[in-house]
Simulated assay, not measured.
Amino acid sequence: MLRVSKALRMAENAAKRIKMSSPVTIGTHNGHFHADEALAVHMLRQLPTYQGAKLVRTRDPAVLATCHTVVDVGGEYDPARNRFDHHQRGFATTFPGRPTKLSSAGLVFLHFGRALIAQKTGASPEAAETDPDVALLHHKLYESFVEAMDAHDNGISAYDAAALAAAGIEKRFANGGFSLASVVARLNPNWNDPVPSDPDEAQRAEDARFELASARIGEEFDRDLDYYVRAWLPARAVVKAAFDKRAEHDPEGRVLVFEGTSAPWKDHLYSLEEGKPGVLYVLYPENPGPGAKWRVQCVPVSKDSFESRKPLPEAWRGFRDQELDGITGISGCVFVHAAGFIGGNATFEGAKAMALKALES
């Protein structure tokens, strides 16, 4: 409790400093806060226009009218006037190519996401709308991070509830506490927490909690943005180079080989295949050092699936070392997982031989 109280005081003091120093004001609603406006406010504050922006949390239309930008309240979606609400009747805006109705987070990311990404990649503000890497990252970050916020805030389930019920599928355990929306929700006051009698003091305490929530979800967003810019995007070049050379290892292009270094490959492989699945096995060294062992990994039918397009032969599964050598007829075998989705060999030549033999099975 002491640590929470201290954090709240620190956030409150930070909010006070912001309110005293910045001419730009972001408005959002007061009361119970949610992940979407917490993220929307964080994203805006990363941009030069909103550096140190002060925050006003109110539902008073007269006060909101004085704000430079308003998110998640006000009943207006008008980007020309920096109004980004999604609660009004008839609102149905979605991110290009995606079906989910936007929340305030999605609206802010739709209009400001490219600028955020360009700022991170070092692209010029002028190039933000035309740079292909910025466009690729804009779509990827929306699908991987922001869309879930939009769906949650708009009451859209990840799966069709009727279809699940018809199929007799039930959840095996509760997982609601693991979402970012739940992380933000837990920072709201409890229903029975004491409330200061002074309305201004009560609002300051509530605002301080919101500042914590915005920083918390913002930290996760920033980590995702950093990963996709610094690791995911550079991996695309590595995967494309291997994809372009796949016929060197198998005339039908069913074996992908990373020479010297591996990289996150699933997203990029599925994209490069353009809806025409062909690669069945991916070969890569366990580490970039000399003498590294090699892995043979089966390509899943989809990114999040445990089902392989073509598992390693059943007769190999669960065996190791010399016993596996004898079964496969290939020397240097290390293992094949009991589920058949991955195996290993001491050398590249051995790993390639395992993949080619598996293709024949």
Results as ranks from 00 to 15, higher is better:
Val195Asn: 11
Glu201Tyr: 04
Ala235Arg: 03
Ala242Val: 04
Leu256Arg: 02
Gly176Phe: 01
Asp250Phe: 07
Leu164Lys: 10
Tyr227Val: 06
Trp191Ser: 11
Ser214Cys: 02
Tyr159Ser: 08
Gly260Trp: 06
Lys266Gln: 13
Thr130Asp: 10
His268Leu: 00
Ile217Thr: 06
His249Ile: 04
Ser157Glu: 12
Val184Glu: 02
Val229Gly: 11
Asn175Pro: 00
Leu256Pro: 07
Glu274Thr: 07
Ile169Pro: 11
Asp250His: 15
Phe221Ala: 04
Pro199Val: 09
Glu170His: 09
Phe258Trp: 12
Tyr270Cys: 01
Asp150Gly: 10
Asp160Leu: 00
Tyr159Ile: 08
Leu272Arg: 01
Arg236Lys: 14
Leu136Ser: 14
Ile156Asp: 13
Ile217Cys: 03
Asn192Arg: 06
Asp200Arg: 15
Phe178Ala: 07
Asp250Val: 09
Glu273Thr: 03
Ile156Ala: 12
Gly218Cys: 04
Asp131Cys: 03
Leu269Met: 06
Ile169Asn: 09
Ala181Pro: 01
Leu141Phe: 12
Val255Ala: 09
Glu201Val: 09
Ala247Leu: 06
Ala151Asn: 15
Asn175Arg: 08
Ile217Glu: 02
Pro194Trp: 03
Trp265Val: 03
Asp250Lys: 08
Tyr227Cys: 03
Asn175Leu: 09
Lys171Tyr: 09
Val184Pro: 03
Ala241Asn: 13
His138Leu: 02
Leu136Met: 14
Trp232Met: 09
Asn154Leu: 14
Val257Trp: 11
Leu137Ser: 13
Leu180Ser: 07
Gly155Lys: 09
Pro251Trp: 02
Phe178Thr: 10
Ala161His: 04
Ala231Thr: 14
Ser157His: 15
Ser179Phe: 01
Pro132Phe: 00
Met149Ser: 13
Ala148Leu: 10
Leu136Phe: 13
Glu220Tyr: 13
